[in-house]
Amino acid sequence: MAHIIVVGNEKGGAGKSTVSMHVATALARLGHKVGVLDLDLRQKTFGRFVENRKATMARAGVDLATPEYHDLPEVDPATLKPGENPYDRRLSMAVAKLEADRDFIIIDCPGSHTRLSQVAHSLADTLITPLNDSFVDFDLLAHIDPDTNKVKGPSVYSEMVWNARQLRAKAGLKPIDWIVVRNRLGAQMMHNKKKMGDAVDDLSKRIGFRVAPGFNERVIFRELFPRGLTLLDLRDIGVVGQMNISNVAARQELRELMKALNLPGVEVKI
């Protein structure tokens, strides 16, 4: 059975698709068979990434390790059981198609609460939640006291993850390994960074997730998307000039993230 990685957060702009693209491509480059589903059925950012990647390979005449992307299949309403949600059936069919011959399935969730996202969280063996280094984003995980910065209680997204954990427990499945990734860290505002770090660490002990380092804010991620590339691909297509100090540091960030995920059967050597 494939190991299912869900990348989720109910807020847009946290870097979910960037994390999904880099983790999926890193796993493919390490020799693993990777399937990808994008649950943002309107924007389909990951689907666009793979399209761009294939076009770049054709132009450059190179073969880059690439995850296998699938749209969710359509279903005939007449085939649904009474009360069955069509989105549940579509996601189930997509996962069933991939899990037999893939090592990993990565599910990129939209930046909002949807039925598809809710169901996907209950399928997760590993859940990655990118989090901007801001108390605006932190509010999705927990409410804090504005005077003491102490955590008062879980918020809406944490409650959804808790419900997903309960469903998995009832089904006899292993617990979700939940990793919160502090993303888009900046070099400035060190005091705020420390307060965020303390709050995330405090919450991790209370509701049970691990904390992993993410990516600093870098223009290169946005620049590579139209070509369907990640930082790991630059040397393969001869773009040596873009491997400056900042981009080398970004490769190291990805390496550290992959190590922190501690995925089964993955030896990080990228």
Rank of each mutant, 00 (worst) to 15 (best):
residue 213 P to R: 06
residue 152 K to A: 08
residue 41 L to R: 15
residue 137 D to I: 02
residue 247 N to Q: 08
residue 166 Q to D: 12
residue 228 G to A: 03
residue 10 E to N: 12
residue 168 R to E: 08
residue 173 L to K: 13
residue 264 P to F: 08
residue 207 I to A: 01
residue 23 V to S: 06
residue 263 L to A: 02
residue 120 A to Y: 06
residue 139 D to F: 11
residue 84 E to C: 06
residue 188 Q to R: 12
residue 17 S to P: 11
residue 250 A to F: 12
residue 166 Q to S: 09
residue 85 N to G: 00
residue 143 H to L: 14
residue 60 A to N: 14
residue 193 K to H: 15
residue 139 D to N: 13
residue 47 G to Q: 07
residue 58 A to T: 10
residue 137 D to N: 09
residue 95 V to N: 04
residue 170 K to M: 13
residue 204 S to M: 02
residue 244 N to P: 03
residue 219 V to G: 00
residue 17 S to C: 11
residue 99 E to T: 11
residue 231 L to T: 14
residue 195 K to Q: 14
residue 152 K to N: 12
residue 128 I to F: 07
residue 265 G to P: 06
residue 29 R to V: 06
residue 161 V to R: 04
residue 81 K to F: 14
residue 152 K to R: 15
residue 247 N to W: 10
residue 158 S to Q: 04
residue 149 N to C: 14
residue 59 R to G: 01
residue 222 R to P: 03
residue 108 D to I: 01
residue 206 R to M: 08
residue 47 G to T: 00
residue 223 E to P: 06
residue 174 K to T: 09
residue 141 L to G: 00
residue 74 E to Y: 11
residue 220 I to C: 11
residue 45 T to A: 11
residue 69 Y to G: 01
residue 178 W to H: 10
residue 185 L to A: 11
residue 219 V to M: 15
residue 270 I to W: 07
residue 152 K to G: 09
residue 65 A to K: 12
residue 15 G to K: 03
residue 120 A to K: 02
residue 153 G to N: 05
residue 54 K to G: 03
residue 162 W to H: 13
residue 258 M to Q: 04
residue 121 H to E: 04
residue 150 K to A: 15
residue 162 W to Q: 15
residue 233 D to M: 01
residue 223 E to F: 12
residue 125 D to R: 04
residue 84 E to L: 01
residue 71 D to Y: 14
residue 251 R to I: 03
residue 143 H to I: 06
residue 65 A to W: 13
residue 152 K to P: 01
residue 96 A to K: 11
residue 243 M to L: 15
residue 89 R to D: 02
residue 144 I to T: 13
residue 209 F to M: 05
residue 223 E to V: 10
residue 98 L to C: 12
residue 234 L to A: 08
residue 75 V to N: 03
residue 248 V to I: 15
residue 78 A to N: 10
residue 248 V to E: 14
residue 35 G to I: 00
residue 105 I to Y: 02
